[in-house]
């Protein structure tokens, strides 16, 4: 179990972490996501003990750590999985995994779980990226950490491998039953892997919650935009009802008060039709295989992104009618006085 309380880190005058707090339960996977320089990797390094907290405190398995009571990395039992794998080049796979493990059975167990048993005697420089990452994970898990820290574990791998390895790693973490803090800059990865997702920006944790909640009820416009395509459409809120140029919708409770609001629209909240009262013109379309993404400029309004099935055919320049068809309540933010 990990608890982070009011953690701050400064390098000289720049604040890298600003009052970050969260908890991580055993067996839970928490993904930390954010743009480059948001502090997610620093958070990881502080938890691992490779970096000292400026102020605030950590608690790892009931052990309190702060600026004055520092616990060196080797005493924390946090398994760190590096972006560039950090496999020891002079040790073979089995020796890497069994670096400080007495019980050989544990080494074989994790090699089997991750499907790298045939590579036991191979040296790291002969392995592919995906194999290296499996070895790195097996090494961490075989040392029976109290929690696992993953620093962009998939970012050095190619796209096809990423999708596959994501689930393998998740399954292995769940089997081990340890808590995992998984840092990534890829929002799809964060949303699909995490039991909970933390979105960071400029050293602050902007939102922490289950992926569905972060996506559909973002705490800020930044979170809304970071997690997926987002358009903010001006509208009016009365109670639970939202009125916009594209029709009416239901507002989520508690997002904002009555009055002028900006309604968050995702590409699947709106449909385009070539008939009816037209209120927009198609600017471009992008074929995505099973779906098609259109950009349509509202008359005197913002550029809408709309995802349709691939059977819809609309040419650039064509007049269309855009309507809100979302079956779920929409998030609304008080209008920014721009």
């Amino acid at each position: 179990m990990l608890a982070v309380r009011d953690l701050c880190v400064r390098y000289g005058r720049t604040t890298v972490l600003d009052d970050v707090s969260f908890e991580l339960d055993d067996g839970e996977i928490l993904t930390l996501v954010g743009p480059t320089g948001c502090g997610k990797t620093t958070t990881l390094r502080v938890v691992a003990g490779l970096e000292r907290p400026g102020s605030g405190a950590l608690e790892i398995d009931g052990v309190h750590i702060d600026r004055d009571r520092f616990v060196p990395p080797e005493k924390r039992r946090t398994g760190l999985v590096f972006q560039d794998f950090a496999l020891f080049p002079h040790l073979c796979v089995a020796e890497n995994i069994g670096f400080r493990v007495r019980d050989r059975a544990r080494v074989t167990h994790w090699m089997r779980v991750l499907g790298i048993e045939p590579l036991a005697d191979a040296y790291p420089d002969t392995l592919s990226g995906g194999q290296k990452q499996r070895v790195a994970l097996a090494r961490s898990l075989a040392h029976e950490p109290s929690l696992i820290l993953l620093d962009e574990p998939l970012s050095n791998l190619d796209a096809a491998l990423k999708a596959e390895l994501r689930w393998e790693i998740r399954a292995a973490l769940k089997e081990a039953g340890v808590g995992a803090l998984w840092v990534t800059h890829d929002q799809d990865e964060a949303l699909s892997i995490g039991d909970r997702v933390g979105i960071m920006r400029a050293g602050r944790l902007e939102q922490l919650g289950p992926p569905e909640q972060c996506f559909s009820a973002p705490a800020s416009r930044f979170v809304a935009q970071f997690l997926g395509e987002a358009v903010f459409l001006p509208g009016e809120r009365r109670g639970d009802e939202l009125r916009t140029l594209l029709g009416a919708g239901t507002a989520r409770a508690g997002d904002s008060g009555d009055g002028p609001v900006d309604v968050l629209l995702r590409p699947d909240d709106v449909t385009l039709a070539a008939d009816g009262d037209t209120n927009a013109a198609v600017e471009w379309s992008r074929y995505e295989g099973g779906t098609r993404l259109y950009a349509a400029r509202l008359d005197d309004g913002p550029l809408l992104k709309v995802r349709t099935n691939h059977e819809t055919h609309l040419a650039p320049g064509e007049r269309v009618s855009a309507r809100i068809t979302a079956g779920h309540p929409l998030a609304a933010f008080p209008r920014e006085s721009a």
């Binding site: 691992a48 003990g49 490779l50 060196p72 990395p73 080797e74 005493k75 924390r76 039992r77 946090t78 398994g79 760190l80 590096f82 560039d84 950090a86 020891f88 080049p89 002079h90 670096f99 400080r100 090494r139 961490s140 040392h143 820290l149």
Partner: peptide, 27 residues
């Protein structure tokens, strides 16, 4: 030498002396 190797050894429970003896020195 990859800087992270020593960090990796430490996070696996090796003291700085052990990390030097088993990682930095052989490499």
């Amino acid at each position: 030498l990859d800087r992270n190797l020593v960090g990796a050894a430490r996070s696996l429970g090796a003291t700085p002396a052990e990390a030097f003896r088993r990682i930095t020195l052989p490499l």
